[in-house]
């Protein structure tokens, strides 16, 4: 079984985000593998441990993402590919095409990735890659089974579960609950450096997509204001409160 995992490097969920000139300031912020992508790595490793094969991790980004690819290698992936985006204007569509082209001739039976990256939260790359490569797909999977060359994925839907079966090759996006990602072992960490990490330049991939989305601004949510207490006599307080709910909070 040849399995590819697409991962993105994101800010640590506990990082204090600072916005500078319309961009999140990356200096001094801890980075991690997007948690949903970690579920994808874990699932890939479990499938490989069961049926054998190879797990290859892909990430698009600068040299900085090497750290995350190494961590995936330390967890047990066999090799890694970094798609260098230097000089290419990107949005989710472009990144998806770059990854799809990099996956290209790999003959992967299965592609796994997280359903969402916790930074931009656009939930697009996985599904776009599946479309570009014409793969069957199941999204937001919380349970995955492989039998007789078919994948059965369970996903939560309004009020229940949906069980979907797809033939291989397929792309699966992982949702929380799929598994509990392992810690990289000490030996895994020691071996990670010896494993292959290939760099592919996006500019060599003949990407046809142009960015269609432009980020106009990035800003932090307004600081929470202190609560307001209405302390006039009861009748006046109630009517002031109702007025505020209608006109300020706009909830009624």
């Amino acid at each position: 079984m040849k399995i590819a995992v697409l991962i993105k490097q994101t800010f640590d969920t506990e990082a204090k985000i600072v916005v500078k000139e319309g961009k999140v300031d990356p200096s001094g912020v801890n980075v991690i593998i997007n948690p949903y992508d970690e579920f994808a790595i874990e699932e890939a490793l479990r499938i490989k441990e069961k049926v054998g094969g190879e797990v290859v991790v892909f990430s698009a980004g600068s040299d900085k993402v090497t750290e995350s690819l190494r961590k995936a290698l330390a967890m047990g992936a066999d090799r890694a590919v970094r798609v260098e985006l230097d000089g290419v204007a990107v949005d989710e569509g472009v990144v998806a095409e770059a990854l799809a082209k990099a996956l290209g001739e790999g003959n992967f039976d299965l592609v796994l990735t997280g359903w969402l990256a916790i930074d931009d939260r656009s939930a697009q790359v996985g599904v776009r890659v599946a479309e570009i490569l014409n793969l069957s797909q199941i999204n937001m999977v919380t349970q995955l089974e492989l039998a007789d060359g078919k994948l059965t994925g369970s996903r939560e839907i309004e009020g229940g579960m949906e069980v979907v079966e797809v033939p291989l090759p397929a792309l699966i996006t992982a949702q929380r609950g799929l598994n509990e990602p392992r810690y990289p072992s000490m030996k895994g960490i020691m071996q990670a450096k010896k494993k292959e990490l290939k760099v592919v330049n996006a500019s060599d991939l003949n990407i046809s997509a142009q960015p269609k989305v432009e980020v106009k601004d990035v800003f932090l949510p307004k600081a929470k204001e202190a609560g307001k207490i209405y302390k006039d006599d009861m009748a006046a307080a109630v009517s002031a409160l109702v007025k505020a709910l209608r006109e300020e909070a706009k909830v009624i």
Partner: peptide, 15 residues
Amino acid sequence: NEEQVMFVDMVRKFC
């Protein structure tokens, strides 16, 4: 070094 950074990161999470 790179491995020790990854090692400490793993151990911290584990702890």
